[in-house]
């Protein structure tokens, strides 16, 4: 090979990977970065989108939403909704995964349970919302069972009373989301070498000590990464809440996503909606950076 040929060859090798990446980079740029930058721009304009030559607004819209008690209520609801969801997704997912992984359960039963437990995952958010609206109706199944058991005295309007609505949507979301944890943890459990448990048996560990000292540390990478992802996703949940309660009654289930949606499409205040969207973006971004740092650290 001549020197010229070799250097051309080297150039080709250096450029080739970027050529392969370019289609996805272009698509990400067009579909993700561009709207993001546009929305950030809107949040600093007066009457964004509505006027052709919007004036610069500075931080006015941010000040406006920070002064709005509904914004703070939404933020609080979002945190409650998200934290409860992640914690229970993880706990329930863990319990079910441990059950499915146990060799003390009859294999046929185990296969049936595996299918049953994963069912919530097969439904889209809209169907889940509809199912739970039907179940939690004042005259629905849940109320009648609870009353038969004597746990509640009168019919509860789960989605329509301000005291219970937030818990009800959170509950529906917990039900809808644990299978991701269950499946991931089950895969993780199956990957833990058996001899670790045997060594622990010989060292004198009881069942709960094996859980604490072997199972959980071994699953930690999965627990942390799935929790972070779940946190990021759950913070942005919209359809489930929109269809069950629409954020009401009296803002009691208003979360950042419904709050932003209403600002944009009910009040047509696209500038403030953009500011609110940027707040969500910043929180998600913080968590994402955390996630990426964690992934790198491993």
């Amino acid at each position: 090979m001549t020197r010229q040929k070799r250097s051309r060859h080297r150039l080709k090798r250096a450029v080739a990977p970027y050529l392969y990446l370019s289609p996805s980079l272009v698509i990400i740029g067009l579909l993700m970065l561009l709207p993001m930058v546009t929305v950030i721009g809107y949040s600093f304009q007066n009457s964004a989108v509505l006027r052709r030559d919007p004036s610069f607004a500075g931080l006015k819209h941010y000040q406006a939403i920070f002064a709005d008690p509904v914004f703070w209520a939404s933020l609080w609801h979002t945190l409650y909704f998200t934290c409860m969801s992640v914690v229970f997704h993880m706990t329930i997912g863990m319990i079910f995964a441990l059950m499915l992984n146990s060799d003390r359960i009859n294999p046929t039963l185990r296969n049936i349970l595996r299918v049953l437990y994963i069912l919530p995952w097969l439904f889209t958010a809209v169907i889940i919302a509809v199912i739970w609206r039907l179940l939690l109706e004042p005259n629905g199944v849940v109320n009648s069972i609870l009353m038969q058991l004597g746990i509640i005295g009168s019919k509860i309007e789960w989605f329509s009373s301000p005291e219970t609505a937030l818990h009800a949507v959170t509950f529906a979301n917990i039900w809808a989301g644990y299978p991701l944890f269950m499946v991931s943890l089950l895969a993780g459990l199956q990957g833990i070498p058996k001899d670790l448990y045997e060594a622990a048996d010989i060292d004198g560990a009881k069942a709960y000590q094996k859980l604490i000292f072997i199972t959980i540390p071994q699953l930690m990478p999965i627990i942390i990464s799935i929790s972070l992802l779940d946190f990021i996703w759950t913070m942005q949940v919209f359809p489930l809440i929109w269809i069950t309660t629409g954020g009401g009654p009296i803002y009691s289930t208003e979360v950042l996503s419904t709050y932003t949606y209403k600002l944009a499409f009910s009040s047509y205040n696209l500038s403030q909606a953009s500011a609110s969207a940027v707040v969500i973006l910043l929180i998600s971004l913080g968590l994402t950076l955390f996630y990426i740092r964690y992934q790198k650290a491993r």
Partner: peptide, 29 residues
């Protein structure tokens, strides 16, 4: 059960607890 038999075992794979230090591994029992 194994823990009451007063035996210790060395496995072919060693079966060391990966998330524990050498000290913790030895001191676990």
């Amino acid at each position: 059960p194994p823990k009451d038999r007063d035996i210790a075992m060395v496995f072919q794979s060693y079966a060391l607890y990966p998330h524990m230090t050498v000290f913790e591994n030895i001191a676990f029992s």
